[in-house]
């Protein structure tokens, strides 16, 4: 079964498959697939970039949702903590956050293991470090978007939930969340596009994403302009496809609104 799926995926590979961009137009050039060119390496980088962004999104959204909830809680300390969290991670350069997570997590795990009596070297997966750093940044931005969306929902909606005898979880799930998604979607769409671009930072810690692969290709072949141009085009295509897809999501979220 898995063989069938992998065969299907390789047949539908948009870059290096039988009907891929690079295989159709790139043969004989620098971006040919296989041993001759850099096409398959770049295609692998595209896969890493997309999977990193897709893996970060749910984690960051969930964290951001929790932080938005904490930011409007009655507890004063909790509000202060969320304020500090969002100020720090919106104020630090993403690159620095990534370094802190990549090196810091490694040192933290190593010292924890050392105190447990294990003295080996621990190497943190660059993908995992990138995911954690991007999720932290994404959550601090998305919590602000979600918080303002929460504030846009009238109190009467919660009171209606109480009046219907729904408990708080069901009020949240049935009444508040559908409206929240609709209000927050434009802001979250922006954040998704930013996240997609921020994935390029992981190339600095050695993860083989689009930029890393094209950077290596540029250095080896001395064709910097050509390869970075290819990288820009790839990011542009991914952004266009995802804004096309998000248009559908937006229409779906607005299905209950009156047509204007």
């Amino acid at each position: 079964m898995s063989g069938f799926f992998s065969a299907l995926f390789s047949a539908l590979d948009p870059l290096c498959g039988p009907v891929g961009l690079f295989s159709l137009f790139g043969s004989g050039t620098l971006v040919a697939c296989g041993e001759a060119g850099w096409g398959d390496e770049i295609a692998f980088g595209v896969g890493i970039t997309i999977s990193l962004a897709l893996a970060t999104l749910p984690v960051g959204l969930f964290l951001g949702f929790l932080i938005a909830l904490a930011a409007q809680s009655e507890e004063k300390l909790l509000r202060l903590a969320t304020g500090i969290y969002t100020t720090i991670f919106r104020g630090l350069p993403e690159l620095l956050t990534l370094f802190i997570v990549y090196y810091g997590l490694q040192i933290l795990i190593q010292s924890v293991l050392a105190s447990l009596g294990y003295e080996g070297r621990v190497e943190i997966n660059a993908f995992l470090a990138g995911m954690v750093a991007l999720a932290v940044v994404f959550s601090s931005y998305s919590s602000e978007v979600l918080l303002s969306a929460f504030r846009a929902i009238p109190r009467g909606q919660y009171e209606a939930g109480d009046a219907l005898g729904l408990h708080r979880g069901r009020t949240m799930r049935l009444i508040v969340l559908p409206q929240l998604i609709r209000i927050a979607l434009p802001g979250l769409t922006n954040l998704w596009l930013i996240l997609l671009k921020d994935t390029s930072y992981v190339s600095v810690i050695g993860l083989a994403d689009i930029l890393r692969q094209t950077g290596i290709a540029a250095r080896v072949s001395k064709e910097a302009f050509f390869f970075y141009f290819i990288a820009s085009l790839l990011y542009l295509i991914i952004a266009m496809i995802s804004s096309f897809g998000l248009g559908f999501v937006e229409r779906w979220a607005k299905r209950a609104e009156t047509a204007r």
Partner: peptide, 20 residues
């Protein structure tokens, strides 16, 4: 173009290709 392409790519592109 500028808003859809990651800043890191733009910086590499403009820094190397621009001076060239």
């Amino acid at each position: 173009l500028i808003r859809a392409v990651p800043e890191l790519v733009l910086i590499l592109l403009l820094y190397y290709a621009g001076t060239d």
